[in-house]
Design a protein around this nucleic acid. Sequence first.
DNA 1: TATGAATGAGAGTTCATTCAT
DNA 2: CATGAATGAACTCTCATTCAT
Lengths: 195, 195, 195, 195
Amino acid sequence: MPRTKKQFEEIREQTKTKILNVALELFAKKGYSNTTISEIAKSANISKGLAYNYFESKEQLMEEVIKILFVEIENMFIALEGEKDPFEKLSRIIDLTFEWVTEREDFWRLYTNLLMQVETKVIVDKVAGNFMDSMFTEMEKMFRKMKIKNPVEEAKIFGAILDGMSFHILFLGNEYPITQMRNFLKSKYSKENLV
Amino acid sequence: MPRTKKQFEEIREQTKTKILNVALELFAKKGYSNTTISEIAKSANISKGLAYNYFESKEQLMEEVIKILFVEIENMFIALEGEKDPFEKLSRIIDLTFEWVTEREDFWRLYTNLLMQVETKVIVDKVAGNFMDSMFTEMEKMFRKMKIKNPVEEAKIFGAILDGMSFHILFLGNEYPITQMRNFLKSKYSKENLV
Amino acid sequence: MPRTKKQFEEIREQTKTKILNVALELFAKKGYSNTTISEIAKSANISKGLAYNYFESKEQLMEEVIKILFVEIENMFIALEGEKDPFEKLSRIIDLTFEWVTEREDFWRLYTNLLMQVETKVIVDKVAGNFMDSMFTEMEKMFRKMKIKNPVEEAKIFGAILDGMSFHILFLGNEYPITQMRNFLKSKYSKENLV
Amino acid sequence: MPRTKKQFEEIREQTKTKILNVALELFAKKGYSNTTISEIAKSANISKGLAYNYFESKEQLMEEVIKILFVEIENMFIALEGEKDPFEKLSRIIDLTFEWVTEREDFWRLYTNLLMQVETKVIVDKVAGNFMDSMFTEMEKMFRKMKIKNPVEEAKIFGAILDGMSFHILFLGNEYPITQMRNFLKSKYSKENLV
DNA sequence: TATGAATGAGAGTTCATTCAT
DNA sequence: CATGAATGAACTCTCATTCAT
């Protein structure tokens, strides 16, 4: 018996997800330019031609990958929304950042690459808008709740520390004292030390 | 009458410098893979072939660009060696970083790109070795002189702030409150606030 | 509906054979270095890029051409294996050599080129190994069967005559008295004259 | 004091000879296509530009190299003209061939390459004419003097043996029993065995 | 006479994209 | 829906040749 429309759609959805996952992984590992459509197709167990059935071009595939990337980042923050205690929230942000940067290294590498290159930055802007602004605002709110002086500036400093450390970890790998710094940072931004 | 050896050397010096400057700019703006030798040649007003008279390959050109980058970074630190007061030194490091990141944006963009991209990381390792370690060590010494607690960790935090902020400035451009943050950071790391 | 696997295989087989034939002809006529992939593609009525769908590199294409060459040479010898009478066999080797050198001139030209050119010798060694040794050994056996004195040396002399004559024919073309020499050689190496 | 016209001409002659020798060596060792004018100039301790002062083009340089090649071959034969005894002459031809092919391997390799490739063959024809014909004629005379039957054919067989063996020696190098075959050939073509 | 910087055409190679089946 | 053969533009790199000095 022929498949129903719904079944077809499910298959389509599955294939598309497969391609996106594979593309994300490869773009992150090897960079956008050094990843070929052939490789992606092979890794996804489909033909080159079929990839073009799902995505107009390599660039559009990249766009969709970036979208996923930012959705995941957004989800990370949504997961924190329940947390009302700003000190606890800060602590969890630190944890999450360290977890992500170690467990999803490629992911972060792709993210950082994207932001730095003028050409891909356009794509990022298109799909992610001013996400960095909202991050700063989010953190500012936290610091304000904590009654810290200069919450605007402290939020930016805090953001810089997280991104800067991610940087250093990605660059130095195991040579970086990850656990030690994580604990140090959490202590530095703990209730006892901040207030 | 043929040109003298000195004349030839001057020509080579000039052309080589021109190529290197253009390459630095383009590599920084577009990334290594997305920059072609053709573009570099066109920007430098020379023929494609001539570029290969000066550099064995695209990779070797990149290497020389990176070398220059790190020599300049080194010079920045050498300029600070005379400064014996650690608080003053810290303040000047902050100033220098902000000046560089605004005045020599390409430079920093390239530097950041390099640290993140897998493909160029190999080249960086080859020409720059463990420069980041020595930076951390240098900063650690400063914090030790200041009798700050946990100098190792504070050095890493400070480095993260500088790199993280540079990152944000490069990404956000004029939207980032550069002067404001510069002053805030200098105040935060001033003698009065640290001791 | 996509083509079946078999259909694809047929297409690949056909195109590959076409490329190989053209490459054989051009490599033979102009030498390896003086033949470009563009020329081969044009002669085969395909795009330059397609050639690389079938062969990894120019060198690998050459390797496959050489392989074919040696397979055909081997087949020539296999065809003779049924022949038990050494005198008859010798006669047929002479005939075959003359036929090949006239009917498959490109083939022989390539073969001769290969043996002489330093650049291709490496490739030949890779795919053909010590084929010349086995040829000498084969001929030596024949002469031994004929109870000729010094079979080792005579085999080498005989081999030299065949290769030397092929060389002369290729060089002089129709100016060389091919039929006459063929008959003369067959008579010289006939049972009546040898024993 | 300024150099005289004659001195200038001598210098010119020396430089030209130097270039030709170097070119011969390199063309022979690496093949025509794989030898660059730069290499030749560097090996001759002159500038690239100066080479073009002496030779119009790479091809013309090649032509002159070939000329020298054939002059040397001719000299080899002229050296034999004094020898009136055909048996002795034959023996010396064998010796000379073996000596050349071992001592001037590159030389012979170039010569063989030239004859095989359709494009360079044109150059050879231009400078050397039908030298092979005259060789055959020369040998034929010898065999006629010896009162050998079928001197025309035997001359061709003999020529084929020499060229074929040169071939095998160039291809197999030290694996070929050079001395053994040289003695065998000389014995085979000695007065005792021929008459 | 002599230099080597500079050119430009063309080599080998890669790959996003198209399309007949 | 699915295939992979085929294209063509663009890439890195090479080198014979020219030319200002």
